[in-house]
Simulated assay, not measured.
Amino acid sequence: MAQQQVVFLTGASSGIGKETAVILHNAGYKVYAAARRIECMQDLQDMGICVVFIDLLQEESIRLCVESVMQKEGGIDILISNAGYGFYGAVEDTPLESAKAQLEVNLFAFAHLVQLIAPSMRAKGAGKIIAVSSIAGKVWTPFGGWYHASKFALEGLCDSLRLELKPFGIAVIIIEPGGIKTDWGIIAARHLREISESGAYKQQCEHYARALEQTYQGSSLSSPSLIARTIYQAISAKIPKTRYLVGFMARPMLYAKRLLGDRLFDAIIAYAWGKRW
């Protein structure tokens, strides 16, 4: 019988992460579901999934969490870096402390996890690293500058990492979701109002925040389970794709960007949110 593969998954307390933990557990993987809000993960624990605490803003927390899993299991076969959030606000208004936190969670925490886990994969001559990015790593919206910066950077980091690790039998795979039915947009709208609710961007900010809320409270977005199934597809594939573009408006948005160029794409984004700047 083949040895059970060990999965280390971040952002497992809700949405895509929780759905992924359940699917992989049911598929026979040994899943370590990591998140800061472990009180939201009792249902996973009841299923037999290993729930572990991690704070991606604290390097020591990341190190201790990974080391505890490595000591128990002797290694990690699959890393799924799913945790992330969108901090919205005009670039002019956003405190650099908040911008740095956005990059810390969405980019540097991933890099730290790779540095801790890749050596054990390299020793085995096999492994898979899944980075849940976003279509936001290829396109842009107003007031999302720091979020887009984190995802653009993550995409570039993964492309280089894929070339570095391929000779050691380690695959690096990027998941690029479109619009997914989670609390992401509601949280982004709240941040936007907190940062830019007064001053030069007040009118645009309120309009865009309302548009975010309407979109994420509507019924058009894709289910988190779609992304979870895509992650499972990437993990189980003998030769996975380098990228999986999936979810509401992901393909049309990327196609429009390639076809139209920057200025026309800017106009499309403005029109899509019902506002001309």
Rank of each mutant, 00 (worst) to 15 (best):
E67T: 04
P119Y: 13
Y208T: 09
L107D: 11
I174D: 09
A123L: 15
I54L: 01
M1W: 03
V69D: 02
P119T: 14
I235L: 08
G17T: 06
K202W: 01
R210M: 04
P119L: 10
I16F: 03
G144Y: 01
I239W: 00
R229G: 04
V69P: 04
R122C: 06
K202Y: 00
G75E: 01
K275A: 11
D77G: 09
H148V: 01
K151F: 06
G84F: 02
W146H: 06
A2V: 12
G178V: 05
A126M: 12
Y208H: 08
T182K: 00
K151A: 08
P142I: 06
R276T: 09
F110L: 11
H25N: 15
V139K: 04
D43Q: 10
G137Q: 00
M253Q: 14
L221Q: 05
R63F: 08
E104Q: 14
I195R: 12
Y85A: 04
K275T: 00
I80G: 11
S98F: 09
L9F: 02
R251V: 07
F110C: 12
L44R: 05
A34C: 11
V52T: 13
A123H: 15
L260K: 11
P224A: 14
A234T: 03
A237D: 10
N26Y: 07
Q203A: 13
M1L: 09
R263T: 15
S196I: 14
L79N: 03
A136L: 12
T230I: 00
I16G: 03
P119G: 14
W184T: 05
V7S: 03
D55M: 11
G89P: 01
T10E: 04
A228M: 12
I117M: 05
S14E: 09
H112N: 14
D159A: 15
G11C: 04
F248G: 12
M41S: 13
S198C: 09
I78Q: 01
I269R: 12
A267M: 13
A272S: 15
F110Q: 10
S222M: 02
A34D: 10
E206G: 07
A111V: 05
Q58T: 11
L254F: 10
S134E: 04
G15Y: 07
T94H: 04
V66Q: 02
V172S: 13
I62V: 14
M253D: 11
L165G: 02
Q3K: 12
G75C: 06
S219P: 08
S236Q: 14
V139H: 03
I239H: 09
K72I: 03
L24K: 14
I174H: 04
G17M: 08
I186P: 06
A211R: 15
I187E: 09
T230L: 00
F8Q: 03
L96Q: 11
T20D: 03
S160E: 13
F108I: 03
A153M: 11
K30H: 06
P177V: 07
I16N: 05
F265Q: 08
Q214Y: 02
N106L: 09
G86S: 14
Y216E: 01
P167V: 08
V6S: 02
S98W: 12
A209Q: 07
P95C: 02
H191V: 00
L56P: 00
K166C: 04
